[in-house]
Structure formats: structure tokens, C-alpha cells
Amino acid sequence: MDTVIDAHDVSKIYNRETIPVYAVNNVHLHIEKGEFTALVGPSGSGKTTLLNLIGGLDKPDNGNVFINDLDITKLSANELIDFRLKNIGFVFQSFNLIPVLTAKENVEFIMLLQGVKKSIRDARVKQLFRQIEMDDKVDIRPAQLSGGQQQRVAVARALASKPKFVLADEPTANLDSKSASNLLDIMAKLNKEEHITFLFSTHDQRVIERARRVITLVDGRIVSDTAAVSTKHEKVDV
């Protein structure tokens, strides 16, 4: 198995001078290609902080984050932007999309940043919209899409750059249960059929149940990890 993410003893400490908050505390985390993993834990447990460290949006105070054997904590802010563009797909909780662009243009946007040729862009957009089951909504602006549809487009955008993995911080938090379940269906399908690696955080018990591996954070520490079980599942699935 290829290791995609290897977080090694990472810590993020806020308010060092006053009352230090160990948002992420000596975390070791290993994610292999093709995983479908949920990061859970109570509010303030450090889920967002950990995802930001792995996604190269933030730098740890301690430890290293390896993505495909590259230590991204050593990259400069500008190198990180480029790294994110080429290697990581992001889905945020809400307002993922650029309001002035249509669904299709939002997905295309990432490829424009990458300088992908028009013919390839068009083909990829078509394929992605089929995968998120929204062929009929390509030319609609985000404001006219439902929350669930917006998140699906965000997933399509995250995938447009053919990233090594997708990070999603509470992608279903603003969705009703039906839309949430629908989004999870699509993510799971992409994971299964295209072997896309997903790492997402959530509060939602129904979403947690869909994950094949569940990592639980409390006060910035990993308190449980179903890695052993998930690996077994994976072998069965593949």
C-alpha cells in the first residue's frame, strides 16, 4: 500500500505565552491510498486544526507532515500554495464555490489555475458532473443550487485537479440528512470506483457510520483509531 499522508508527532499550540491550548497534541497519523476515513471528536478537539496541518494550510509547532514522502512543513508559503493546487483537493463546510462562476466554471477553475488544455478540461468537467450526478446543473450559479448540490460541486472541484487525496472539513455540517447521505454516497462511490482517498471530519453519527476508518480526537490527541478494522474491510472490498 502507498502511504499518502504521514503525520509524524505533530503538535499545534495556540496562546503559547498565556494559557497554552494544545489544539493538536503529538499526533501520529498514517493514511494509505484509497482510504475513506472520518476524523471525529467533540467540538474544539482539534479536527480542523489537524486537517489544516495535513493540508498545508497551517504549520505545526512540532513534528513533520509527509505527503508522499515530501515533508511539507519545510515548504515556504508560496510553495505550499502550489503544492496544494497539485496534490490536495479541499472541500470546506460551506461557501466553497466562487459565487460569480457557474457550477461548471467553478470546477474548471482549478484546471485553469493548473493550465490544463481546454479539450481536456471539457472532458474532465463532463466526467465529473456525471460522477456527482449533476449533468443538468452545469450552467447554474451556486446561489441557485441547494446546499447539498453545492457540496457535490465542491467535491467535483476538489477532484478536478486529480489530487493525491481529498480533505473535507465537516462537508455535511450544513446539510439536511438526506443531502448529507447523498453526498456521502457520491464520495463513497468515488472512493470505491476511482480509489480516491478521502479524509473528512464530522460530528454526524450517520456520516461516521459510512466511514471505513474512524479516528477519534479528544483535546488534540487521538484516543481511538479503527485502523485495524478498516484495513480488513478494505481487503474485503478491493
Partner: peptide, 16 residues
């Protein structure tokens, strides 16, 4: 502000 943060997060160079 949020949107610009999002754009830089997903990989838009600041120069762009």
C-alpha cells in the same frame, strides 16, 4: 475575505 482565503487554500497563487 473568506472567498479569498478559500481561493488561496485551494491553490490560487497570490500573484494571480
Amino acid at each position: 475575505k473568506f472567498e479569498m482565503g478559500m481561493l488561496v487554500s485551494i491553490g490560487m497563487k497570490k500573484s494571480k
